[in-house]
Design a protein around this nucleic acid. Structure first.
Lengths: 216, 216, 216, 216
DNA sequence: AATGAATGAGCCTTCATTCAT
DNA sequence: GATGAATGAAGGCTCATTCAT
């Protein structure tokens, strides 16, 4: 992790695998891009598959660490938390900085490998549980399955902008897609979701977060 | 197209590419599975990439034809159309029959290739325009971009169940995911969406479609 | 078998494997020596191991076909058969024509692989049974195990000249080893064996075979 | 030589090279088995080939020291010496204790390397000369070449049981080969050889050695 | 003296593709 | 028109070896 060659290999692997997939990316290209020897992958990671898994985890780490959730206090109101959550998610989806990382994650979702299990366990489940907790505060009487359905609806809206970005861009044009920036999408999804929860009038409670708090 | 060998090649390519991706799937395996000669791919399609594109289009055709939209009359109320649309989409996402086709589509979304352009033009854009038309009927004063945002929210909810199925299944368990069947998910997304549109009380107008109408 | 490329591959494999062993010989070198493509081995034989097995069998065929046993008639006396057998064996061991073939066989004996089973079944067992039959005629009252011990003693004497040729040549010098030609070794082993069988006075009955009959 | 790491490397090399040959055995595995560093081989022996040579010599030392010739007195009769010699040789060939050592020696015979010269000079030639001396006592009038031929016949019979053990075991079955134990083979080869020397009636003079004398 | 991190050469195999038939 | 034999390129990986410590 601290070894600079290992770090460069992970970065290169993230880019190459994101661009060409596990099968399409070659160890040779990754090493070349990382300025390392052909044998470096086997030396540091054992084999190509393990490098891939580590690259996926590295990618997810890059995605989440770049845009963390705010540090809520015990008395942060749940609506505020929900607004924060949506904003963090849309930010992750739309900011171009971590394009390769997200691309790699999307590949992993489409065709899960051994990496998926580790990523879900280490990174996704904690996020999911935080969203469930927020929704439980907002709908204390709902059964667990309904909470999941609501969570899926919220997250599904956010993920759309990354997972189907090429399609959306083809539909509305690249310049058209530019208009869907973080701010606009966040406001839309927040309003859409509050309406669905029957809390349309509480929209201001959600959006008062300073954007500076979550922007990196 | 009418050549039975060509047809078998497309089916085999759909399966293999869905399972292993473009790079992972081999021409040899596809030909073997289709009972054709090793050179058949190059003979019928020119090269592997063109076969892939045709397989993606074939897959999308299979997806849409398997679960078509109902034939609405001019006086079908828009809410009913919206309900139908959601049901058709969730059905496509959740029914296991067309697993390979959808899997291949998901791959293409995650990493668009030349096939993506053709699929969007031939199959996705028409669907998108129908949804835009429905939403325009429901919100005649909204600007085009807001209609898109609403459309993305609706479709994003539906796509979630396919694009992130492995993750969702890991979160709630395989047996837990079974509970999210077409009926339940359809009702949830319809209700969630109507609420977001401020039409929560109109839910019955959406759901009166006989399921037989959309079941294949 | 009839394919000239396949034939050349077998010959090249025999030489290379004889010289460097299974691990030491490379597919690349074999193909190069055979004037074939690098992929030819996998195309014709599947993998390196199968090529090796076929090369060993090819080598044994070359050894045995070059110096076959004479066609005995029902009334050929057993001593004559024994003399023929010894002469054929020493000829195979000492004639330089099939050096590579024998070298490869010796390697296989020292470290048997999957090829050994097939060679024993197809080529060695028939020879062994013929020797057993001859010995049974000469010693009708001996138990089977004693016949094997005698057979091993006879064959062991012959094999020595090939299996330990480098050592013997180092002991007596290369020019000294030259003196142990087929004729002399045959006479010695025949006389030694007849003496061991208590038939020393019958030596002439053994050696009357025309050498032309077994020389190639 | 006295360095314990060097000793462990030699033992490990003997085992690995015996099992997989020079090319098949890897320096890494040898070092691992010896609990030494990857670079230890190059440090102690220069390169892999020199380690191999030392391992072969080490193996031959282990073979001969494990079953030494008895200490004959000047008046030990030659027939007794011959019997001892045969027994020592068959014991070395058939006792399973030194399997790895002998296996490695057999490999070296089949494909002599630089190690062969040294082994012959240091270990084999002395043995050969002792056998020549014995035979010279028994056949004082024979020419040197005939003495060699007789020596080769004797040693060839013994070596057979090791050099062609896999083949013999395939011919008579593994359990069948078990019956050829040291005692039986020794008696057979001794009797066979005495008969060949025209001394069949002197068999008792050969076999009176106490077995304890040659057992390790 | 002795180590282990790091390397470049080479391994076997699979691949998509072509060409003569 | 349609095939299958044959190919060159490239794949992942293992190897013996070296060099700074």
């Amino acid at each position: 992790m601290t070894d600079p060659t290992q770090e460069r290999l992970l970065q290169a692997a993230e880019e190459v695998f994101a661009e060409k997939g596990f099968q399409g990316g070659s160890v040779r290209e990754i090493c070349k891009r990382a300025g390392a020897n052909v044998a470096a992958v086997n030396y540091y990671f054992g084999d190509k598959e393990r490098l891939y898994i580590e690259a996926v985890k590295y990618a997810h780490r890059a995605c989440t660490q770049g845009t963390p959730l705010p540090n809520w206090t015990p008395d942060t109101p749940p609506l505020r938390k929900l607004g924060d959550f949506i904003r963090v998610f849309t930010t992750r989806m739309l900011q171009p900085s971590s394009a390769a990382s997200l691309q790699l994650m999307m590949r992993e979702m489409a065709q899960p490998t051994a990496a998926c299990v580790e990523v879900v366990r280490d990174y996704i489940r904690p996020m999911a549980e935080r969203l469930q907790a927020i929704l439980r505060e907002l709908k204390p009487d709902a059964v667990a399955e309904d909470l999941y359905l609501h969570g899926f609806s919220i997250v599904g809206q956010c993920l759309f902008y990354r997972q189907n970005r090429p399609i959306a861009a083809l539909l509305v044009g690249d310049e058209g897609f530019q208009k869907f920036d973080v701010e606009r999408v966040t406001r839309h999804i927040t309003a859409f979701t509050l309406g669905a929860l029957g809390l349309a009038d509480r929209l201001p409670d959600c959006l008062e977060s300073e954007t500076a708090e979550v922007a990196r």
